[in-house]
């Protein structure tokens, strides 16, 4: 079994269409599928709804798809780092559905696990709960949130084997796991494709059953907030 494609465009061949729902991994600019986002930009599909915790920054990550007006709606928990996003949102060109971060992650996880909805305390008594079914369990009030099943998932991992088993690195794992599981089709971009048998089966973070296509390439891995401390003088 070889799921490896020669380029991001090749890996997306036949999977893209206007008005589709895409789930994207990443947190801020950490662990985002930057090669696949660029390939979606080049493909020119429009009217996209994108479920992603953040919306990238101007000119990088999902910000690239905003600049080309390919995104109709974002489902996100925090979008503060993108001036073009705010301009389009405030002018009514872009729809935005705020989801609490954990609710968004669980909506993806549930969608991928065949669970159409789940009850959570998160957001009870806030604008998030408006219009949602409320239910009491053991004296506490919960709201019903729906699972997300995406037409396509795009994720970024550190290593893959040709069967699609993925290993992530540090906090770049983030939304990539739940996003990958909730797609009808999942394309993963990785820093390195390693031979079958070279990943320890006990340390696979995401089994290949969730991953349909793989592409590798050079990643910029931009840092959003570079914070450092000074070394003590010796």
């Amino acid at each position: 079994m070889n799921k490896v494609y020669p380029s991001a465009s090749a890996a997306l061949e036949g999977l893209l269409q206007d008005n589709m729902l895409i789930a994207a991994g990443g947190f801020g600019l950490c662990g985002i599928p930057e090669l696949l986002i660029a390939a979606i930009r080049d493909a020119g599909v429009k009217g996209l709804t994108v479920a992603s915790n953040n919306a990238g920054v101007d000119g990088f990550g999902l910000g690239q798809l905003l600049e080309t007006r390919q995104v109709k709606k974002m489902i996100s928990s925090y979008v503060g780092e993108n001036a073009e996003f705010m301009r389009q949102y405030l002018s009514g060109e872009l729809e935005l559905e705020f989801n609490p971060q954990g609710t968004l992650a669980e909506r993806m996880r549930a969608g991928g696990a065949g669970i159409p909805g789940f009850y959570t305390k998160t957001g009870v008594g806030t604008v998030i709960a408006e219009g949602k079914e409320h239910h009491d369990f053991d004296g506490q009030t919960y709201i019903l949130e729906r699972g997300i099943v995406a037409d396509l998932s795009i994720v970024k991992a550190w290593k893959a084997d040709p069967s699609g088993n993925l290993v992530f690195r540090k906090t770049a794992r983030n939304f990539n796991v739940p996003a990958a599981t909730c797609g009808k089709v999942c394309v993963a971009e990785v820093e390195e494709v390693v031979p079958l048998g070279s990943l320890d089966p006990d340390t696979i973070h995401l089994p290949g059953i969730y991953v349909h296509r793989i592409v590798t390439g050079t990643h910029e891995k931009r840092i959003e907030q570079r914070t450092v401390r000074k070394k003590e003088a010796v």
Partner: peptide
Amino acid sequence: VKGMGGAMDLVAG
């Protein structure tokens, strides 16, 4: 409005 991030989940949980 930038979003609630994880704040709603944290205070509820």
